[in-house]
């Protein structure tokens, strides 16, 4: 199995492999191979389109966690100019799974907070597999307050399996750190744009995902619990994760239907990792547009709208 392709993408991988083979034999053959390659390339495209037009929630959750998926730092590098990283919570440590800083977006200064996973083993450990500890959330809170103080729009890039479940994290108040961010974001006097770029894992994601505008990349997921976690609790078996993914409605499409997010940002064919440059460009355009729109609303009105939006979450009847 080609590691660059997920299981459901294997038919694409096989075609791609055939193309590579043909390319290899091009030199010592008289038949017109260029044409053949072009036909196959077209076939790859149609096949990818067809496979990606009917992805299941479980397949999407694999894309959201794809090892090659662009992470916060990949976007920061491509979307912002003059970026300066800011470090530390001023209390305890600098938590590597939470990154952030000041930069310019299309010339305008903004504050950015993102969650960062690692690519190789060393980096994965350094980034704690993208699971922030309390000091990460407190660093994020410090940057939120700075954004407010200097009237910088706040942009958050959400991608985490969840907040870290560890002994030290509990000792240092993981719950309080997350709760405090929810509180601060609700009343922060600056426009906030949150984008779920990969895995929106529960409270650990929500702690930087409260805002005026909630975007989701097309193949990102956002959920109260991972499909595996939900399956092992409710179905008593992690093997039922595909069913759990379906029931939880973790995809951008479903969450938009439920009016729990505002907007879906389309991904390149085959997912963000197939063309990070294009993905970053699309994200950049969206962020510029969002900021323009939110900045045209007065801050008091914006805060009222944010509050109303939060109060509207819920589905109940009262007889």
């Amino acid at each position: 199995m080609d590691p660059n392709f997920l299981e459901f993408e294997q038919p694409i991988a096989e075609l791609q492999a055939k193309i590579e083979e043909l390319r290899f034999v091009t030199d010592d053959s008289d038949i017109n191979i260029t044409e053949e390659i072009a036909t196959l390339q077209n076939k790859v495209e149609t096949l990818t389109q067809s496979i990606f037009s009917k992805l299941t929630p479980w397949q999407i959750s694999q894309l959201a966690r794809h090892p090659n998926r662009p992470y916060a730092l990949d976007y920061i590098d491509r979307v912002f100019e003059d970026f300066e990283f800011l470090h530390g919570d001023r209390c305890y440590a600098d938590d590597a799974p939470m990154v952030g800083g000041i930069g310019r977006l299309d010339g305008k200064p903004v504050m950015v907070i993102g969650q960062q996973k690692g690519r190789d083993t060393k980096e994965k450990i350094k980034r704690n597999f993208g699971m922030p500890r309390p000091e990460g959330y407190r660093k994020a809170m410090r940057l939120m307050r700075l954004a407010e103080k200097f009237k910088l729009p706040l942009i958050t890039l959400v991608d985490t399996p969840g907040a870290y479940p560890g002994i030290g994290a509990e000792e240092r108040g993981q719950s309080e750190a997350i709760a405090r961010n929810l509180y601060v974001l609700a009343e922060l006097k600056t426009p906030i744009i949150s984008t779920i770029t990969g895995e929106g894992g529960s409270g650990g994601a929500l702690a930087i995902a409260v805002g005026d505008r909630i975007n989701m990349l097309q193949y990102a997921t956002y959920s109260v619990i991972s499909p595996e976690g939900c399956a092992s609790i409710l179905w008593k078996s992690a093997d039922k994760a595909p069913q759990a993914a379906e029931a939880l409605g973790i995809t951008a499409e479903r969450l938009k239907e439920l009016e729990l997010i505002d907007n879906i940002i389309p991904e390149p064919l085959g997912g963000a990792h197939r063309d990070p440059e294009q993905m970053a460009a699309t994200l950049r355009e969206q962020l510029i547009e969002d900021i323009d729109r939110l900045q045209s609303i007065g801050i008091d009105k914006l805060l009222d709208q944010r509050y109303q939006k939060l109060m509207n979450y819920g589905a109940y009847s009262e007889n």
């Binding site: 509180y183 409605g249 439920l258």
Partner: peptide, 22 residues
């Protein structure tokens, strides 16, 4: 904690309740 059967809606109750306290 959150009620799994209400999926993301239950997660968002965390934000809703915290906001009310402001």
């Amino acid at each position: 904690g959150a009620r799994m059967q209400e999926a993301l809606i239950s997660l968002l109750q965390m934000a809703k309740t915290s906001a009310a306290l402001t």
